[in-house]
Design a protein around this nucleic acid. Structure first.
Length: 355
DNA sequence: AACTCGTGGAG
DNA sequence: TCTCCAAGAGT
């Protein structure tokens, strides 16, 4: 029964021939990179980022020696930027303590920042053929359906891992893990799973009872608040003033237009003047409304009003940011910015480019 | 254990 | 348009 499951799975995997840029790579660095990029991120989103990254940083040493701005620029748009910062640190640790090679050792891999149970098992099984089950959202969904596991998702990872460690084939552990994830992505999908062509339907309890829609059991969803934000595009002699966010926390290390949350009853224009004074110690004056940008994050969404501003007085200093810079608009693409700011670029600079 | 971390695709 | 959620990890 158990052997049947892994046999059917691998048979399906071999016949699918799903081609990914990192699949079958002998380069452990490529596997390591791809597994970090794939955290909470779909395969099709990762592929172009992965290709560009290995062009920009062919080796682990190239990552370790690059400045954080270059790292974040390559990661720009992929989200969850702590992954990029942690990957940067991990590559530096690998160069210092493991002579520049991905360690073939589960404890060493797990000790690296940004490498948790999933990524450690994925790298060890795919790059080094250790028989460790990698439990991601796909695997969790498949196994919860196979066995009708009714506990909420957040408590299920350990149980699924121990179930799979008895099944995972010693000779093809990496293929088994990748096959499970491909199956979850292509066949055993969250909605409308293709059970009729699933190689595991013969031993799936959810399929037998027509209960696939009820598994896995979802966790309660918190409400997302909406914040009103205002930012200023501050001009001085054809340059604009940008600030860099603190390295930790939301969008850590990325550049942005100065601004912040509106206080209760405050206008967007007053908010910009106040925030720029608080963040950078600079006095500005709003001159023209640019556009309202809406953007949604994981736990909240924002409505952002953007204004052109003119510089009045004060030398910038870092009060609530990690860096600042006067920069020409055409050079702004050199630095990493969050998506909400990118939505503003074309509207903020379209008029200026005509001049 | 519950929160915090982005963004884009799918429905 | 709106909601859900994805090759999770850190705190």
């Amino acid at each position: 029964m158990k052997r049947q499951l892994s046999s059917n799975l691998l048979k399906w995997y071999d016949s699918e021939k799903i081609s990914l840029p990192w699949r079958n790579s002998a380069n452990a660095y490529h596997i390591f990179l791809s597994e970090v990029m794939l955290q909470q991120t779909q395969v099709n989103t990762v592929i172009p980022y992965f290709q560009r990254w290995i062009q920009a940083f062919p080796t682990i040493k190239d990552v370790a020696q690059a400045p954080l701005d270059h790292i974040l620029k390559q990661w720009e748009g992929l989200g969850y930027y702590s992954r990029a910062r942690n990957f940067h640190k991990s590559c530096q640790i690998i160069c210092e303590k493991f002579s520049g090679e991905i360690p073939n050792n589960i404890e060493a891999i797990s000790s690296l920042p940004g490498i948790g149970p999933y990524s450690a098992a994925a790298v060890m099984s795919i790059a080094f053929h250790h028989p460790l089950p990698a439990v991601d959202a796909n695997v969790l969904r498949i196994v919860s359906r196979l066995h009708l596991l009714s506990a909420p998702v957040s408590t299920l990872t350990g149980k699924v891992a121990s179930l799979l460690s008895e099944i995972i084939p010693k000779n093809r552990a990496g293929d088994f893990n990748q096959a499970m994830m491909d199956l979850g992505r292509v066949i055993c999908t969250n909605r409308n799973p293709k059970c009729d062509i699933c190689p595991l339907n013969i031993c799936c309890k959810a399929y037998a009872k027509n209960l696939t829609h009820a598994f896995p059991k979802k966790n309660a969803k918190p409400l997302k608040p909406v914040y009103k934000i205002a930012v200023g595009v501050i001009w001085r002699d054809g340059d604009i003033l940008i600030s860099r966010r603190k390295e930790e926390g939301l969008l850590g290390g990325l550049w942005e237009f100065p601004g912040g949350k509106l206080l209760p009853g405050e206008t967007a224009e007053n908010c910009i003047v106040r925030e720029v004074q608080e963040e950078l110690g600079v006095v500005v004056q709003t001159t023209e409304f640019i556009k309202q940008i809406k953007h949604s994050y994981t736990h909240f969404s924002i409505i952002m009003d953007a204004y052109h501003c003119k510089y009045i007085s004060g030398e910038p200093r870092c009060y609530q940011c990690s860096d600042w810079r006067w920069i020409e608009p055409e050079d702004i693409s050199m630095l990493p910015f969050p998506k909400a700011n990118h939505k503003l670029f074309q509207h903020a600079f379209a008029k200026e480019e005509l001049c």
